[in-house]
Simulated scan of single mutants.
Amino acid sequence: LKDFVPDSDSEVVRRIKAAGLVLVGKSNAPENGWSITTEPKLYGTTKNPWKQGITPGGSSGGAAAAIASRMVPIAEASDGAGSIRVPASCCGIVGLKPSRGRVSLAPYGDYWYGGAYFLCCSRTVRDTAAYLD
């Protein structure tokens, strides 16, 4: 998916833009989100900004590292088996896995038969609550 650019926005992206947030790019992630670390062949290992040699977690490790290093205050993240919560704990930021159906997947169907959830990682609970609202 190196050069992939969607031809339309999801409902979440539409709402993000409507709220006035600025989308700045993509962060590093393991191939297909299938790892609890972020070490893809395409872009290489993501470093934990707090301590070299410690993983930033995965699969949203690139997002978590970007937040912990203060590159961005908040980043979209997904969680099927800990991929929001693990990077948040590894990088000392906030990660919340929402309840099933809480965040719209429109116009797309279900992911992993209801096993994948989407929200964000952020620096504060307040930012995560604002994103959820």
Rank of each mutant, 00 (worst) to 15 (best):
D3T: 07
P6R: 01
D7Q: 09
S8R: 07
D9L: 12
D9W: 03
E11T: 14
V13W: 00
R14Y: 03
R14P: 02
R15F: 15
I16Q: 05
I16K: 04
K17A: 00
K17V: 05
A18C: 01
A18G: 14
A19D: 08
A19I: 04
G20Y: 14
V24Q: 09
N32H: 11
N32P: 01
T37L: 07
T37H: 07
T37Q: 06
K41C: 00
G44Q: 00
T46P: 10
I54V: 13
G58H: 01
G58W: 11
S59E: 08
S59L: 11
S59A: 02
G61I: 09
G61D: 07
A63C: 01
A65N: 01
A66S: 09
I67G: 14
S69G: 14
S69W: 05
A75S: 07
A75C: 11
V86G: 10
C90P: 05
C91P: 14
I93R: 00
V94T: 02
G95H: 04
L96H: 13
L96T: 08
S99C: 14
S99T: 14
G101L: 11
R102E: 10
R102G: 14
R102T: 15
P107R: 02
Y108M: 14
D110Y: 15
D110E: 15
Y111T: 13
W112N: 15
F118R: 00
L119R: 02
C120G: 07
C121K: 13
R123E: 14
T124C: 11
R126Y: 11
A129Q: 11
A129S: 09
